[in-house]
Each structure stands twice: as structure tokens, then as C-alpha cells.
């Protein structure tokens, strides 16, 4: 989806900043286990950076349901629709 592509671009910049790694490539299947340093604190940084970027707020249930980058993108897509 076109909307997804835009979200991936912005999310890639957020990931590059949070992990200080410009070579990180985001795919829908990517999970925390596959990225070195992606712990619960980095997870919070990513979430808060997304909330700031898109002007949205995730609730506890939504955050608990996130398993992969694809989940995050579709959640952002739903909340900004």
C-alpha cells in the first residue's frame, strides 16, 4: 500500500536514529530478536518517537500486541487513517 511505503520511510529514519545505524533495513517480518540492542527500553524509544512523529498515542493493549515491524506499521496506518 502507498500509505505503508510512506510509513516505512519515516520509520526507517526513526530506527536509524534510535539504533544509530544507518544500514538497518526494515521489513514487515523484522522482529526485536533480529536487531542487536533492541531491548524493552529501545522499544519504548521507538514507540515514543512514533507517537511524536505521527501525533498519536498507543494504549497498553496495542503495545502488547506488537510482534514485528509489520504489526507496528499497520497499527500506525490504522491510527492515522
Amino acid at each position: 500500500m502507498a500509505a505503508d511505503a510512506g510509513i516505512y520511510d519515516a520509520l526507517t529514519e526513526i530506527f536509524h536514529d534510535v539504533f544509530m545505524r544507518d544500514d538497518l533495513k526494515l521489513t514487515p517480518e523484522l522482529t526485536a530478536k533480529q536487531v542487536q540492542g533492541w531491548d524493552s527500553f529501545k522499544q519504548i524509544e521507538i514507540i515514543m518517537a512514533c507517537e511524536e512523529k505521527w501525533g498519536i498515542k498507543f494504549n497498553t493493549r496495542e503495545l502488547d500486541s506488537l510482534r514485528s515491524v509489520g504489526d507496528l506499521v499497520s497499527l500506525i496506518n490504522t491510527k492515522t487513517a
Partner: peptide
């Protein structure tokens, strides 16, 4: 408050 429950951060990272 939600963040406090999740990570015990009293002051939000933001």
C-alpha cells in the same frame, strides 16, 4: 501512568 506500569520510568523519556 501506562509507562510507569510498563518500565517504572517516572519521568517520561520524551
Amino acid at each position: 501512568t501506562a509507562l510507569w506500569h510498563r518500565s517504572k520510568q517516572e519521568v517520561t523519556p520524551g
